[in-house]
Structure formats: structure tokens, C-alpha cells
């Protein structure tokens, strides 16, 4: 029913984080466009640039939305990876 109001659980700390890599250089100013994902740059072994978007997603639909935006901007996707909490804590 439309009167249910809760949308996302608040407190982004429990939300899953993803790392998305795309080919080419994307400016940090695109961050707000991609739901405030953090944008960093790196490059492959043969020096072609790679952009990395990292951040938490409310759910799979949010991830899908980001991927669609990349697709619509004709950006080339390299990889998508779920960042396990354990990864970050370095266990």
C-alpha cells in the first residue's frame, strides 16, 4: 500500500559497499551524479587510466541504477565487486 512510508533503513554503516571500475578518466565532480560515490583514479599496468567508484548502496536496485547510468553515458565497465566488511577490517 502507498501509505507505507519507510524507504531505506537509516544509518549507512550496515549497507553493502561496492567497488565499480570503469575505463577512462572521470572527474571527481561526477560524484554527486553517482549518488555521492567516492571517485578515485588509477591505471592499468600499461598506463591506461581507470576510474574507481566506491560507496554504499541501499540495495540491489540502487546498484542497478548506477550501472544503468554508466551504460547510458556509454562508459565501459571493467568490474563490479561487493566489498565484504571483513575486507576492510583486514581480518
Amino acid at each position: 500500500m502507498p501509505y507505507e512510508k519507510s524507504r531505506f533503513p537509516s544509518g549507512s554503516d550496515q549497507l553493502p559497499s561496492y567497488e565499480i571500475r570503469i575505463r577512462g578518466k572521470l572527474d571527481g565532480r561526477w560524484s554527486s551524479w553517482f549518488n555521492n560515490l567516492t571517485i578515485t583514479l588509477t591505471h592499468t599496468s600499461n598506463q591506461s587510466p581507470i576510474t574507481i567508484l566506491i560507496g554504499s548502496m541501499a540495495d540491489q536496485a540502487a546498484l542497478r541504477g548506477i550501472l544503468c547510468k554508466l551504460w547510458d553515458l556509454n562508459l565501459k565497465l571493467i568490474s563490479v565487486r561487493l566489498i565484504e566488511v571483513d575486507d576492510e577490517e583486514g581480518r
Binding site: G24, K25, D27, P49, L73
Partner: peptide, 8 residues
């Protein structure tokens, strides 16, 4: 020569 996103 630029590696920037084309449209940008």
C-alpha cells in the same frame, strides 16, 4: 591524447 571521459 586525453583519457578523460569523452562527453565530459
Amino acid at each position: 591524447g586525453s583519457h578523460h571521459y569523452i562527453m565530459d
